[in-house]
Simulated scan of single mutants.
Amino acid sequence: MGWKENRELRKVQTEPLIDIKLEPVEYRIHFLRLKITNVGKGGAHNVKIKLFPEPSLDASFLVTAQKAIKVFMQRDFMIKGVNYLAPNDSKYTDYLSFTGLNPKELDSEYFFNLIFNAEIRYEDLKGKKYKNTYKIDTSELKIYKLGESFEEALPKALAGIQKSLESMSKNINRQTAFLDKKSKAEETHWNE
């Protein structure tokens, strides 16, 4: 039994495992893209990725899901596949933007309520075939928030400014008192 478990462990340690996730772009928080990564210990060959909307989506959300999928599928590797994806290697799709400045953008209210599926097929070095299907729920990203709202941040910022001004005023008063004392001492020295 131990020999069988060891054999299974060795096999798992050499298998590829392709993972896909929706993530913000590091240098632009309002851009999102898909990251496809081989998190397994073995290389993945002939990787094919297919994206499709969740069948249970309402018709109004279906249009947004199809637009998002069209943007993600624009990269050559998403269309033709990847010949080889090494362990810990990643590929990134085109990004979606929510700033209102370019035609790739989508309505964020619809987008952050989508669910779409990613089907990934690939092989290991020996030709063993794998198929994984992932549900990508965009609503999970709604909980992330950068900073505070203006209404929350303004009173704190004003209190911080007030505190800084009071501290500067005290420092100026101390410096003025020190300089006055020093100049009086010098004046006394010259009068003698």
Rank of each mutant, 00 (worst) to 15 (best):
N46S: 14
L158G: 03
G147D: 03
Y134A: 07
F112A: 06
G2V: 13
F61C: 02
R174G: 01
E186G: 01
E186L: 13
G42R: 04
E148S: 08
D89W: 04
E15Q: 15
I49M: 06
L106P: 13
K48F: 10
K135V: 10
S97G: 15
L114W: 02
R10M: 13
V25N: 07
P87M: 09
K131V: 15
V25Y: 13
E8P: 02
F52T: 10
L114T: 01
K4T: 15
D76Q: 13
K163V: 02
A153F: 11
K35N: 09
K50N: 09
K131D: 06
K48V: 10
R28A: 13
F52A: 05
Y144I: 09
A118T: 03
A86G: 10
V39S: 15
K182R: 14
N6C: 10
K128R: 14
N171W: 04
K184C: 00
D94N: 15
P16H: 07
I172W: 08
N102G: 11
R10H: 08
Y95C: 05
S90W: 07
F72N: 01
L165W: 04
F72R: 03
K145S: 09
S164Y: 10
K156I: 07
T14K: 14
Y27T: 15
Y84T: 13
L96D: 07
K163E: 15
N83D: 15
S149A: 12
G100M: 06
T64C: 14
Y144M: 09
D76T: 11
N173Q: 15
A118L: 03
K21F: 03
L32C: 01
E152G: 06
L22R: 01
F150Y: 13
E166R: 10
K50G: 00
N83L: 07
K145C: 05
L125E: 15
H30W: 04
L165M: 12
Y95M: 07
K181I: 01
L51D: 08
K70E: 09
N102L: 05
E23K: 12
K156L: 10
Q13C: 09
I161G: 02
G40K: 05
I161Q: 05
N113E: 11
I20C: 05
F98E: 04
M73I: 02
K129V: 14
F52W: 05
P53C: 02
G40P: 00
T14P: 00
A177M: 06
L146K: 09
F178E: 14
K4E: 14
K182Y: 09
E123W: 00
M1E: 14
P53V: 03
K135S: 11
M1L: 13
Y92K: 05
S90I: 05
N6W: 06
D89S: 15
Y134H: 10
E105I: 06
T14D: 05
D89A: 15
E119T: 10
F112G: 04
F72W: 11
P155E: 07
V63W: 00
I115C: 04
Y95A: 13
K11Y: 08
T188W: 01
P103Y: 01
